[in-house]
C-alpha cells in the first residue's frame, strides 16, 4: 500500500506532498475553522487549491457537485474525495480523522462551556458580530465556487454564459419568491445545465 500511495503522491507533480502533511493540514482545518461550514470550506479551498495547488478549482467544483447527491454532511464527503484523490484509501482515512477529531473535541468542549455563559449579553453580541463575519466569508467562499464555472462558460460564448447566469440568479429568485423545495431547485439547475451543455456540445460537433 505504501508504494501505491507514493505513486499517487508522485502523480501530483508536487514535491511538497506527503501523507503526514495531508493529515496535518486537515488537523489544522479541523482545529481552527471556527465559524462552521463556510469557514471550513474557505480553508479547504485556501489550502488545497491556492496554497499547495494539489487540486484545481475545476476539480473542486466537480467534487462539490458529486457531494450534493450523497447523504450526510457534504464537507465530510468533500474530505473523502480530496483524500482519495491525493492518496487513495489511506488519504481518505487520514483526511476524515484529521478533520473530525479536533472539531468534535472542540465542539464538545464549547458545548460544555456555552451552556453556562450563553446568558451574558457580551456573549450574545460577540456571536452576532462573529456571524456577520461568517456571512461575509461565505460570500467569498461561494464566489470562489462559481467563478471557474462562470469563466469557463464565458469562454464558450454568450449563450452558455447567459444560461449559467440565469441558473445562478434564477434559482435564487425562484427560491425567494416561490419558496419551492431545495430538491426542485437542484433539478432545475441540473436540467438547465444539462440541456445547455448538450446543445452547445452538439453545435460544436456540427461546426
Amino acid at each position: 500500500m505504501g508504494k501505491k500511495v507514493e505513486m499517487d503522491c508522485l502523480n501530483l507533480n508536487d514535491s511538497d506532498f506527503t501523507c503526514q502533511l495531508l493529515f496535518f493540514i486537515w488537523l489544522k482545518i479541523g482545529g481552527t475553522s471556527f465559524g462552521g461550514g463556510a469557514v471550513t470550506q474557505y480553508l479547504i479551498q485556501e489550502n488545497f487549491i491556492y496554497k499547495h495547488k494539489w487540486i484545481t478549482a475545476e476539480e473542486y467544483a466537480n467534487i462539490i457537485g458529486m457531494c450534493q447527491i450523497t447523504p450526510g454532511i457534504n464537507i465530510i464527503a468533500y474530505t473523502i474525495l480530496i483524500g482519495k484523490r491525493l492518496a487513495g484509501w489511506r488519504g481518505i482515512i487520514l483526511s476524515v480523522l484529521g478533520l473530525i477529531l479536533p472539531s468534535v473535541v472542540i465542539t464538545i468542549m464549547i458545548s460544555a462551556i456555552y451552556a453556562n455563559i450563553s446568558q451574558y449579553p457580551e456573549v450574545q453580541s460577540g456571536l452576532r458580530t462573529a456571524f456577520a463575519a461568517i456571512f461575509g466569508v461565505s460570500l467569498a467562499t461561494n464566489w470562489r465556487n462559481v467563478k471557474p464555472i462562470l469563466l469557463q462558460n464565458k469562454k464558450r460564448g454568450s449563450l452558455a454564459f447567459a444560461v449559467v447566469l440565469a441558473i445562478l440568479f434564477g434559482s435564487g429568485l425562484i427560491y425567494i419568491f416561490l419558496d419551492v423545495p431545495v430538491v426542485i431547485l437542484y433539478l432545475f439547475g441540473g436540467a438547465c445545465g444539462a440541456f445547455s451543455y448538450r446543445y452547445i456540445s452538439k453545435r460544436k460537433q456540427e461546426v
Binding site: 440568479f169 435564487g172 427560491y175 437542484y186 439547475g189 441540473g190 445545465g193
Partner: peptide, 21 residues
C-alpha cells in the same frame, strides 16, 4: 458526456445561490 458536466455545474450554481440566500 457533456450533459453530466452540465448537471454538476448547474447544481453547484444553485447551491451557491441558495446558500448565500
Amino acid at each position: 458526456i457533456s450533459t453530466i458536466q452540465g448537471i454538476l455545474d448547474g447544481v453547484v450554481l444553485v447551491i451557491s445561490s441558495f446558500t448565500v440566500i
